[in-house]
Amino acid sequence: MILPASITGAPFLADPAFQRVIMAIEQDGDRARVVGGAVRNTLIGVPVDDVDIATTAPPEVVAARVAAAGLKAVPTGIAHGTVTVVSSGRPFEVTTLRADVETDGRHAVVAFTRDWVGDARRRDFTMNAVYADADGALFDPVDGIADALAGHVRFIGDPAERIKEDYLRILRFFRFQARYGRDTLDPAGLAAAVALQEGIDRLSRERIGAEMRKLVTADGVVPALALMDETGILARILPGGGAVARLSVLIDLSIRHGLPIDLETRLAALAVDRQALAEALRLSRREDKRIGAIVLWADTLATRMDEAAVRLAVFRAGNEVASAALLLAVARAGHDLDIDLLLLARDLQLPKSPVTAAGLIAEGYVPGPALGAELRRREAAWIAAGCPTEPSVGN
């Protein structure tokens, strides 16, 4: 196979905001090249989100040069050589070429260099170590182009050494396989990940949570998680492991019925213990609340899966939660989904309820728990009756 020598024509190369950053940095013999996701994604035809730049210029020099060019420099990771340059309102992460001086499995002490090959060899996967000049010419010191095009997620050099530098790379290995892999998982990488999985215990829950969010939303999440479960890695992240088979059914249902599912719905299906999941992944309050709502209504719909129950779920929690809960309830039960119920959950627009707290107070109810219980009872009866316009239903 003839490999491409350039990505000339990539839209981000023609972006004036990008060009201003490159022109500001490339002075006095210093060079700047795009590296990582932007190059990889362009090669494989995937949209580019962020453009990261590597340079021979030290970080303080980068900051001074871009400031002189009228751009904003933010020292987001100055100790590790990273300056975020803001050009036309867009951030570009600019990092000086580095060599690791010392690593502890979580963080690294680095020295700045001018060695492009050395910088490439300290990165994680070959597909992430392809560089592109501002004109699109490619520099591929570790054969990353072939791996990117083949969908082969391969560590650079010795997988065990790369993992020992940062144990988060175990999770990144599975995440990249789930998102970009098109062949079987690299045997050497898998063996190293399994052998060194205890290192995951040294990572912060915040870093684990951020990586797992990306993994769970990847297209190939199920086979990746299944292998993590089989090798014991998933149990190190989620106490009790995860309900991978249930997540698989949920995703299959969503694909077959054309209903996209978000991160919280996937986590609700995967969770064996919701509280443990929240703690293990450091879920935000919003994420945990939404997962709780999906699980609650899935429990409700599992006991009664009919139009009245779906209407009540929509009324109480909204269309998105009701739809997700219905899919989860069906995935748990393992039976076919009633498409009419799904369409109802997705599309139903309920009229405003004629049952109100003010109306109940006018009837003599006193504000408090009893009033709330009666309000919920009458609302449920109104919904079960088909949402008539009169409030008398359930009196």
Rank of each mutant, 00 (worst) to 15 (best):
V194R: 11
R33E: 04
E60V: 11
A54T: 09
A317L: 02
D336V: 08
S88C: 08
L185S: 05
R114C: 09
G105T: 05
T126M: 05
K352I: 12
G240V: 12
L344W: 15
T82Y: 00
K352G: 14
P16I: 04
R256Q: 14
H257A: 06
R98W: 06
G105I: 01
M23L: 13
L215M: 15
F112I: 11
M1F: 12
G181K: 04
A293M: 08
T303K: 12
L203C: 09
T389R: 14
S204R: 14
R377T: 10
G157Y: 00
L43K: 00
A345R: 12
A333G: 07
A210K: 08
R285F: 06
P223C: 06
D135P: 12
D186P: 11
I25R: 04
L328G: 07
A99C: 03
G241D: 11
A325G: 05
L375G: 02
F112Y: 15
E374H: 09
A178N: 07
R90P: 04
E102S: 12
I78W: 00
S254F: 09
L263P: 05
G81K: 01
F315D: 07
G144P: 04
T96G: 03
N319K: 13
A280F: 07
A210P: 00
A269L: 02
V110Y: 09
L337I: 13
A193P: 04
L348T: 11
A193N: 03
A79G: 10
D219M: 01
A380C: 02
R274E: 15
I53G: 07
F176V: 00
D135K: 12
R304I: 06
V295I: 15
H335K: 12
A192Q: 03
I78H: 04
V83W: 00
P91L: 11
Y167G: 01
D340Q: 12
